[in-house]
């Protein structure tokens, strides 16, 4: 197979609503993550169940310190000397000051910013969903048809070999990963967040129930945040490898230079 793919024409890849929601989410997730770490720092222990075990042990994760040295305890296995976790720059705190907003210890302000961007995040998701349904974005670009599932394996191999196709439409792996983000991780983030709200709990007690309890919901919220951070890293690596200028132009202006041989079959 010919490895040199000749550049094709510019195609209009992303609608305005996709581009605006993309960048709104980027800003929201940045603030949500860093204020989330501020909130986590107020009690840097995660548990499984309804409540936090002080006289019994249902800890899942604990970032603490002993004798001025930080440690991470994951499922009762303690790892120390991990650098920034538990102690950094002479202060005992789970996540370091450069990873939290505000940089100092300020739970109240972290919560104000977190809930503000939480609402923006939710509103953006609703706008995007409505727009995606109306414009056919879901059906056209995200739905995994039988053909996409069957090509998923070879698409994955191509990605691992750093061979990227620049089609008019998303490839199978893109559809799957974006679909998981939008329809699994984003809703999970909102559900686990609401499941921590005592007010929302009263109105919908089934919500913490299906998630394993309020403290389980808090743990899952953290796990989902870690997964989103992982997605972000892979996303950026893919953009850089696939051609950062072309990808960046597409998500800013909408115009994308597709590969020549793929432009007619879309």
């Amino acid at each position: 197979m010919d490895t040199s793919i000749s550049p094709g024409p510019l195609v209009r890849r992303h609608t305005r609503i996709t581009r605006i929601t993309h960048w709104t989410w980027a800003i929201c997730l940045f603030f949500l993550l860093l204020t989330g770490l501020q909130i986590f720092n107020a009690h840097p222990v995660l548990y499984w169940g309804d409540q936090s075990g002080f006289d019994f042990d249902n800890r899942v994760l604990w970032i603490g310190s002993e004798d001025g040295r930080g440690f991470v305890e994951l499922l009762n296995r303690r790892l120390s000397g991990l650098g920034i976790f538990g102690a950094s720059d002479g202060t005992l705190r789970a996540f370091p000051h450069w990873a939290t907003i505000p940089s100092g210890v300020d739970l109240a302000t972290g919560r104000v910013i977190h809930f503000f961007f939480g609402w923006v995040f939710l509103a953006t998701l609703l706008v995007w969903f409505a727009g995606a349904v109306v414009a056919g974005h879901l059906r056209r670009d995200l739905l995994m048809g039988r053909a996409h599932w069957s090509l998923l394996g070879s698409d994955l191999v191509d990605h691992l070999r750093f061979r990227f196709r620049h089609g008019r439409r998303y490839g199978p792996l893109q559809r799957l990963s974006y679909g998981l983000m939008l329809f699994v991780l984003f809703p999970l983030m909102i559900m686990t967040g609401l499941a921590m709200s005592p007010g929302a709990n009263a109105a919908a007690p089934w919500l913490p129930e299906i998630l394993g309890g309020r403290q389980s919901a808090r743990t899952l919220h953290f796990v989902a945040a870690a997964a989103l951070s992982g997605f972000f890293v892979v996303h950026i690596v893919m953009v850089v490898l696939a051609g950062p200028l072309n990808e960046m132009r597409a998500i800013v202006t909408g115009w994308y230079r597709a590969d020549a041989e793929e432009t007619h079959d879309a």
Binding site: A42, H43, D50, Q51, P198, R214, Q215, R218
Partner: peptide
């Protein structure tokens, strides 16, 4: 009932 502290922990 479950007491939820603003710090993040809960106790019944």
């Amino acid at each position: 009932t479950r007491h939820d502290c603003v710090e993040g922990w809960s106790c019944i």
